[in-house]
Simulated scan of single mutants.
Amino acid sequence: MKEWSNENPAVEQQSVRRVVEDNSVENLREVIGQELPDLIVHDAHPIGEGADNTTIEVNREYVFRFPRKGREHRHSFEEENKVLKALRGKTTTRLPEIEFEGKTYQWSGYKKIPGVQLKDVKEELTDTQREQLAKDAALFLFELHNALPISEAAEFGLKRPRGGPSREKLSDIRQLVNREFPDEEMREFLLSSIDRYEHMLGEASPPQGLLHGDFHPGNIVVNPDTNRLNGVIDFGEVAIGDVYVDFAYQFARDKDFAKAMMEEYSRLSGVEFSEDKMKVYGVMRILTHWHGDPKRVVRAKQWLEKLAVMV
């Protein structure tokens, strides 16, 4: 493995950026080896590649995340790391604790949170286990939403969550609906949901808090021995906004689990949820995460169909 030259820092930084943006495991492994010479890398394999980050697991002990190309992704990556540092010790649930950060390019590493993703075990849980896990998830969200004063969180440069778009974005979302949904009944349901959301923007604001922004079963880590919540990962969409947003994804996919979360959250916080509003947030969550991948489009349309017939 070659060594980076210290004689020309600008050239060195450019070389590291080129290697990182290639996103192959071997290149990312090379960057880790060069910037962390005391860490002997025995094993490295990818464990996820989302819209914003590429993630690899090293030695089955550490997780390293690298932002994708583009200044916006690198900026959100920086925000995420700042928030995670500010959240240390403020939640009962384990969160990633940043131990390593890139010297010449943005990346970070933390000890892997042990457990399995909820998406891989959810169907195997008993009703009692699901109810307890929903309560665990509600406690996490309650603690997260109240972990930092809004003014302090705003200093990190956080924006509105993607699941709760600004009024200016609604025109694009309406165009998406008109383009992708030829069925008149479904199209009218979605357009009326967007209208309802726009009206909600002018109403008294729901409770605001620090949001995870992408709270779904793939980012929820469960202890396989106890089936209790053990950690939450991927704060790449952390934001300030309506607390409804963090329930919207679950509501769109698994209404019963989401309702159990909402009931416990209400008990802890006193917030009363409107299922009508939650349905609207579920629609907006899916539409604002629309993706061109045909498989993901099919899945998104299935979730929207569930919301359309939900009573």
Rank of each mutant, 00 (worst) to 15 (best):
G292C: 11
N27T: 01
P207Y: 06
K112D: 00
V25F: 13
V280R: 00
Y249Q: 05
T92D: 07
R196P: 04
K103D: 06
F140E: 06
R253T: 04
P165L: 06
N23Q: 14
L304W: 02
G164D: 06
E272Q: 13
F156N: 11
E35M: 09
A204H: 15
R18A: 15
I113L: 07
L190C: 07
T226L: 03
V20Y: 02
Y105E: 01
R29H: 11
E26R: 14
E101L: 09
Y105A: 05
K255H: 15
V121Y: 01
D38M: 12
P165I: 05
M262R: 02
P294K: 13
E275P: 04
R160E: 07
M262E: 03
Q14W: 15
R162L: 12
H291Y: 14
R88E: 14
N23C: 03
R187P: 03
D52G: 06
R228L: 12
A137L: 09
F142M: 03
P294R: 06
G241S: 10
Q13I: 12
V232R: 12
F235G: 10
E180N: 08
P9A: 14
P294S: 06
R60V: 02
I233G: 00
D43V: 04
Y265L: 14
F181H: 02
P217H: 11
E80T: 02
L84I: 11
Y62P: 03
D127C: 07
V298Y: 11
R130I: 03
Y265K: 03
E184C: 08
V58T: 05
K2D: 09
G109V: 03
V41A: 08
Q117S: 02
L28V: 08
P206Y: 08
D254H: 14
V25R: 09
R68E: 01
V311I: 14
E143S: 12
L125H: 04
V221P: 00
V243Q: 04
R267S: 11
Y249A: 13
L307F: 08
I173M: 02
D43F: 09
F189R: 06
F251S: 01
Q129K: 04
V297W: 09
R29S: 13
F189W: 10
F215L: 10
R18M: 12
G213V: 01
D183K: 10
K255D: 10
E305H: 10
V116I: 06
G270S: 00
P207A: 11
F273C: 11
V298A: 10
A10I: 15
F235K: 05
P217K: 00
H145A: 02
S76C: 13
E3L: 05
E155D: 07
N146E: 09
R18I: 10
P161M: 02
L191D: 07
K169H: 13
V121A: 02
R253M: 13
H289Q: 15
G292Q: 15
R68P: 06
R174H: 08
D256F: 15
Y244L: 09
K103F: 14
T54K: 13
E188A: 13
H75T: 09
S269W: 10
G163K: 05
E272N: 15
S5L: 11
F251P: 01
K103A: 08
E79R: 15
K277N: 07
Q132G: 13
R179Q: 03
P165M: 05
I194W: 04
T104H: 13
E35C: 09
Y265F: 11
L139N: 12
V31P: 02
D234H: 04
R228C: 07
K301R: 15
A252E: 08
G282C: 11
Q13V: 14
K279H: 12
T128F: 07
T104G: 11
V297M: 14
